[in-house]
């Protein structure tokens, strides 16, 4: 089993002075697994994801990506990660194609032109490829940002509240695209944070609840139903407030 762990966080803390955002988090992401991270605001979900994405450094603890400790990895290790967030990371004054080509250059994607065409078709934007992103709807921008994130075919995807700011329809579409990413083609390992409990459950293999900077509860998705999910979640969050 241990060989299948693609991303491993060990005793990760993030603090400044007395203020600790993460107080020792252990998390293992198996190859092909989909984990949903739940937790109230300020629980440290986003911080954890940013640390996994190399945007922030942990105060202590170690992270291994594909067996390589992030601490002494080169910049090229970021090529193993794809990140989708509620921000699109796109340049509004460039066209859809130019955005993908630019990021493709940074990731040094082989056969870039073919790959860009393939992805534009996959997210249904081939007819708008030469339009500036500024003129795209929010949903179209989000689809393009998914194409951007999987351009270099990363084995690990990190999704930071990807549905924030989308309407229901766009969020459903996003869910379908993500599910397709998770199941279709080669196995992809995914960690997603979300506020939407049902959506989080519907997509994942494993649910993890983070509260007060610690992991407080986890369960396999098959052991939970949409009906008992709410109780399960609020019990986990409230247990933090009961002081010994």
């Amino acid at each position: 089993m241990a060989d299948n762990v693609i991303l491993r966080a060990t005793k990760v803390t993030k603090s400044f002075g007395h203020f600790a955002v993460l107080k020792g988090v252990d998390l293992e992401l198996q190859q092909g697994e989909f984990i949903t991270l739940l937790g109230p605001n300020g629980a440290g979900k986003t911080t954890l994801l940013r640390i996994l994405a190399t945007l922030a450094k942990p105060t202590s603890g170690a992270i291994e990506l594909a067996g390589i400790p992030l601490k002494d990895a080169k910049a090229s290790i970021r090529g193993l990660l794809g990140v989708i967030s509620h921000q699109t990371f796109l340049y509004e004054d460039l066209t859809a194609r130019e955005n993908l080509v630019f990021y493709g250059q940074l990731y040094q994607v082989a056969h870039l032109t073919e790959r860009v065409n393939e992805l534009l078709a996959r997210v249904g934007l081939e007819r708008r490829a030469n339009d500036r992103v500024r003129n795209f709807s929010r949903g179209m921008q989000q689809r393009l940002s998914i194409a951007r994130a999987i351009l270099h075919n990363p084995p690990v995807l990190l999704l930071d509240e990807p549905d924030t700011g989308l309407d229901r329809q766009a969020a459903d579409m996003l869910q379908n695209v993500i599910r397709e990413l998770a199941t279709g083609g080669e196995p992809r390992s995914i960690i997603m944070t979300t506020h939407n409990l049902e959506r989080g459950l519907a997509m994942c293999d494993r649910l993890v609840v983070l509260a007060g900077g610690r992991m407080v509860r986890e369960a396999q998705a098959r052991d939970l139903t949409p009906e008992n999910l709410q109780n399960w979640y609020y019990e986990a969050v409230n247990s933090r407030n009961l002081k010994p």
């Binding site: 007395h18 203020f19 300020g42 007060g212 407030n241």
Partner: peptide, 16 residues
């Protein structure tokens, strides 16, 4: 100041 903030933080609970 840090100490005061930490005490406040501890009292408020970790959800702050």
């Amino acid at each position: 100041r840090d100490d005061v903030a930490a005490l406040f933080y501890a009292q408020e609970g970790e959800e702050y």
